[in-house]
Design a protein around this nucleic acid. Structure first.
Lengths: 339, 339
DNA sequence: TATATTTGCTTAATCGATTAAGCAAATATA
DNA sequence: TATATTTGCTTAATCGATTAAGCAAATATA
């Protein structure tokens, strides 16, 4: 077998006739080790292709330098981009990330948390599954004293750090845009109110309608899981109404895409007959025809801030910590579907 | 701070007045421990909410139960689905996965490999970045005796296990389909030949043309990175030709989407004037208009087989190992763009 | 009944790196 | 010159779990 014996600090110590402890300190630039010894140690380490045993130091130091990340699914541009940005920040600080997918399942999310705790991650950064209502698993993380940062789908009363965009204001921006285009009956295909971000979008939508003196029609407010199929079904339902809406604000690009399909299939002109707005600014929104107006969520920023927030917890001592709730302003990207 | 002292086997041992060694063995159902003791140990473990220290056992046993996964980017349905399927298989076998993205960058891929080796993964499952030509980093993994399994973008001469689809045959299926529809000038927007799978697609395309007695026109064979922008640019170039093609086979759905945009913008009827076929069966292929004919790659299968191949390496002893090269048949999903 | 085997544990070493404590030599200070 | 401090290392314990070796008691076998 190709597997040669692993080089340890002991091998370096033997080579130089010093103690393993001195080698360890030299590698970490301890001030009580002479420059001469440090140089010798580093030279020999290089010569022997020494790779520190991460498990041993993790065990001794009580930290793994791993951060667990939980997302509903990596296959959206939003999440993969958030992750990429987190990775950049955390790698620089010497951390690696373990990415897990909940597939929008509460059960899978619980399993992922157990797995991450078992793997002894130094912290967890998560965005919740659609199904998640019971937060006791997150309480478990907190009770173990492991830093927890939530982002996007995660605002709640857990009293942990959170990074996300201003959903309430986003709805205002969307409604304002549609009103300016002359829309009077704006429907909202939203997520479930139990998830804070979706509740905020609904609240923002309702308040914005009031602000513009438009009537609230509960038949035009729909809660769903926001999958593509949900978008199709709910759009079809809206089309079956006596009094059709003249605009639909969908709280997810995937569902918006489903809605668009139904509109196209029914030869309903978008935007002339019905204006359509999605949420998330997934790349396909600019690719379909007509292209879909959407809200950009600053995924890179969210990832960076979430990672930095974790690092604050990891480095600073407990006493200095304050709760961070960072809400970024979102941006409306206007495309053909609402022009 | 909320962090209570961690429960160790020592605590359980004290509780029961037995040795930590007995506890360890009881937890692992060692045959030399009495049922009575096993039951007692498990009861106390539960009572104290004992969580084994993964780092300690990993250090002692010399394995981390972590598998590193490297993909170009998780935001395609193909890769996220492959990963999901790997995760299922590996979790069941007691492994966790660390997912890393190369973002199609060779440099990032090298970094990821170093990171994974440092984290002491028990194996690496990878699909290469577009940029990757130099394979010395993969040699490094092999030389450390760490199991390596490649999938999709990874067939090569490294002499490691590989799981992928039959790219050569897929091209044959595509060309046959187009010929049956009456196409005579079939262009191919492909990847770079240096990547084996793309070379195989090009070879299959050329051989299939020959088989159907169609002339080979090198002006219709294009190599690119297959991004959406590449698809747009190359489609535009094809439209500028004196003698336009009547069909375009694009080796990636993203590039095919770019091509479709250009065709739509130029009011060229797809499929009547030009037929279009993509590769990968990304969800959006069925969502755009017209929907894009594509090749389904059996992502779940690929993930499952790659994971199982790793497990074979991890469990069986070195002598028994044989090289696996598993090539799955791909499937043509015919949609409007080629009907 | 005498010996062999099995059962059920304990003892002690180990996986590598880290770190508190300590010691001798070198240097600084009074 | 005598004492205090600093420098540069070593020694030994430690992080928890695992496991080889071993031992006494219980049981099986001749």
């Amino acid at each position: 077998m190709a597997n040669k014996k692993r080089i340890t600090i002991k091998d370096i110590a033997n080579e130089l006739n010093i103690s393993p402890a001195a080698v360890s300190k030299a590698m970490h630039n301890d001030s009580r080790i002479s420059d001469k010894t440090k140089r010798a140690v580093k030279r020999v380490a290089k010569e022997l292709d020494y790779q520190p045993n991460h498990l041993a130091s993790a065990l001794r130091k009580g930290k793994s330098n791993l951060v667990g990340v939980i997302v509903p699914k990596t296959n959206s541009n939003f999440f993969s981009s958030v992750i990429e940005s987190m990775e950049n920040v955390l790698n620089k600080a010497g951390y690696n990330i373990i990415i897990t997918q909940s597939n929008e399942s509460f059960e899978k999310e619980c399993k992922n948390i157990d797995t991450l705790l078992f793997t002894q991650v130094d912290g967890i950064i998560a965005s919740m599954a659609n199904e998640t209502v019971d937060l006791s698993h997150y309480e478990k993380i907190k009770s173990k004293g492991i830093p927890l940062v939530l982002f996007d789908r995660g605002e709640n009363d857990l009293n942990v750090d959170y990074v996300g965009i201003n959903d309430y204001d986003s709805s205002h921006v969307i409604v304002k845009h549609l009103v300016e285009k002359g829309c009077k009956r704006i429907a909202h295909i939203g997520g479930y109110r139990r998830t804070r971000i979706f509740n905020n979008r609904i609240r923002g939508y309702v308040d914005a309608l009031k602000k513009h003196n438009l009537p609230i029609d509960n038949g035009l407010i729909i809660e769903s899981s926001l999958t593509l199929e949900d978008g199709r079904r709910e759009m079809q339902n809206l089309l079956n109404l006596q009094n059709r809406p003249d605009a639909v604000y969908v709280a997810s690009d995937y569902a918006a895409l489903g809605a668009l399909q139904v509109l196209n299939e029914n030869k309903i002109n978008v935007p002339d007959s019905i204006r359509l707005i999605g949420f998330g600014n997934e790349p396909f929104t600019s690719l379909v025809s007509p292209s879909i107006t959407s809200i950009a969520q600053h995924s890179k920023e969210i990832g960076r801030i979430a990672a930095e927030t974790f690092l604050q917890h990891a480095t600073k001592d407990i006493l200095k910590q304050s709760l961070n709730k960072i809400i970024l302003d979102a941006e409306l990207i206007v495309r053909d579907s609402s022009k």
